[in-house]
Amino acid sequence: MFGAINPAVLIASLMVASVPIMLAALGELVVEKSGVLNLGVEGMMIIGAICGFITAVTTGSPLLGFAGGAAGGAALALIFAVLTQSLLANQVATGLALTLFGLGLSSLMGQGYNGIKPPLTAAVPFGPLRDIPGLGRILFSHDWVVYFSILIIAATWYVLKYTRTGLIIRAVGENHDAAHALGYKVNRIRLACILFGGAMAGMGGAYISLIRVPQWTDGITAGAGWIALAIVVFASWKPWRVLIGAYLFGGITVLQLNLQAAGSSIPVEYLSMSPYLITILVLVIMSSGKGRTLNAPAALGQNFHATR
């Protein structure tokens, strides 16, 4: 039924396929940890994709491209931050508007960049390690962003769990009134988190336009931002689970195409909806444990206004 699929190759390609949603989801996780729900991930990703692309093509450096993508995503996130933190606008609606605006703006910025090849990002040179059967392909055959995405997951996990910064972010997200009473600048902390989220989403977008697809076309992110949002919930706001969620989702997507290519007998129409159904199924299993709550930050989606 499954035909001939090489598991090492499958794992290697799902690692690449998952990078954009993983980066974006991680950024959103930090945002949500601080108590802010930004549904504009798709918009920030696509702005990151075009900003990264333009920067890389103009400067010839893919590295600067990623910096440009992060800056672009953060710039769009700044609009969100001003609206929701300073002007106390509704977060859900502002996030959706952000996506609409980002899609339009990216298409405007991208005029004239169709059909250009960006400078390529090579795999990290691991030398002979790459040739280890199986493991070499999985562990040592990728570009730097794949490793970076795992590192940043680890770093976020560490910061959130063990540092004072992480404690403050969590405090702000759980109970902003208490955090304010303790003297923390709630809105400034949230602003920083929103910018971080934008930068990560922008990098994720840049990964699509610079490495995964290497090109610019309108609407290139094609819904990846929504998947990233789903993964945050799926991960119940835990960094390592973002990794698992992204790999799972990316893995099923890659697997269903591989199954088709290998001539599997499962009908295509069911395969194409499988990533979503399996995500729901896993989520149900995870959340149905004995009375466990979902671990959502208590102040998620609520704006904070200092009364004193």
């Binding site: 390609s13 396929a17 697809v213 992110t221 094609a222 819904g223 990846a224 997507t253 195409l257 088709q260």
Partner: peptide
């Protein structure tokens, strides 16, 4: 039209 998915299909 979904560049990422098309790339994955080609890769598969």
């Amino acid at each position: 039209f979904d560049p990422a998915k098309e790339a994955d299909a080609a890769k598969a």
